[in-house]
């Protein structure tokens, strides 16, 4: 079954601009503070699997009222270590109750030689690397019994000779693994700025039919004085340049789930909901342009 068929076979997929369900406001959301304001929540199952306390019950109640998307950080899809059997079993058990339409993780390595480094570290952009990663993505998809998406990361040290090699690498993984792309347009912008390339040229290499979900986020300078490197911190509001990339993609793909990420300097929920509304306006405008283009093409 192709990844599209796999996704279509599952429950209805939410669209619109959702938020990450963070522990800082999980209790508020549980009490209904965001009801009617958010089309879906994205969670990281790494924060729920094999963990008790108030979280599981709260998540279960939230999941009764909202669609939940699943996005992880710890599979180390590009790592050299064997996939973690216990972790995969834990994820599969967790998904049995939650039934997210897919699971996503990053095109990176985050563990090495049994050491979990808890960060998104870059991979070499070679065919050999793409082949190895794609095989692991396929295996994870089979073992989790659901479609997988991979996310393009921000990188600060390229392990290839040209930035556009990264797009080619992403495409090769997508096709070899027959998986979807969680396209993080903030990461495209961060990389384009840090490494000096045109983000639209990068996006033009991506088969948009494989884009299943989008991420947008804010970023910050590593050194406020030098301002020569921006880091994907998810710690600031989304910049207009990232809005523009979001719009560029949605104009071409139509409706998708878009996740506004915020993991650092998390503002009060009301403030985050207001930013969600602002990003949603960008998304809705792009969606309207997409519909108009479709209508024009249909009439022609």
């Amino acid at each position: 079954m192709s990844f599209r068929a796999g996704i279509a076979a599952r429950a209805a997929v939410p669209t619109g601009v959702g938020l990450g369900l963070r522990s800082t406001f999980l209790a508020e959301v549980d009490r209904g503070a965001a009801d009617g304001r958010v089309p879906f929540w994205e969670i990281s199952p790494d924060n729920y699997v094999a963990r008790g306390g108030s979280r599981p019950a709260r998540l279960a109640r939230v999941a009764e009222r909202f669609p939940i998307l699943s996005h992880g950080l710890s599979l180390s899809l590009g790592g050299l270590d064997a996939l973690n059997d216990d972790f995969l079993s834990g994820l599969r058990g967790f998904f049995a109750g939650l039934q997210p339409p897919w699971h996503s993780d990053h095109l990176c390595f985050s563990a090495h030689d049994g050491k979990m480094l808890h960060d998104l570290l870059p991979l070499p952009w070679t065919t050999a690397s793409a082949r190895r990663v794609a095989a692991r993505v396929r295996e994870v998809s089979e073992r989790l019994e659901r479609p997988m998406l991979v996310e393009n990361i921000s990188y600060y040290l390229p392990l290839g000779s040209s930035p556009l090699d990264e797009a080619a690498f992403v495409v090769e993984v997508l096709e070899r693994a027959d998986c979807g792309l969680l396209l993080d347009v903030n990461n495209v912008f961060v990389n384009a700025t840090n490494h000096g390339f045109d983000p639209l040229a990068w996006l033009a290499q991506i088969p948009l039919g494989r884009v299943v979900q989008l991420h947008v986020a804010g970023h910050e300078f590593w050194d406020d004085e030098r301002q020569d490197l921006i880091i994907d911190t998810h710690g600031a509001p989304v910049r207009s340049e990232v809005d523009a990339l979001l719009a560029w993609v949605v104009e071409r793909t139509g409706a998708l789930p878009v996740l506004l990420e915020r993991d650092e300097n998390i503002p009060p929920l009301a403030e985050l909901l207001a930013e969600r509304d602002r990003v949603d306006a960008v998304y809705q405008a792009a969606l309207a342009r997409h519909a108009a283009q479709q209508a024009t093409q249909g009439a022609a």
């Binding site: 790494d46 924060n47 699997v49 094999a50 963990r51 950080l73 710890s74 599979l75 973690n84 972790f87 563990a111 049994g114 050491k115 979990m116 480094l117 808890h118």
Partner: peptide
């Protein structure tokens, strides 16, 4: 180094 994939356990 941490071994578990769960950040909170480190």
């Amino acid at each position: 180094a941490p071994k578990a994939p769960y950040f909170w356990r480190l």
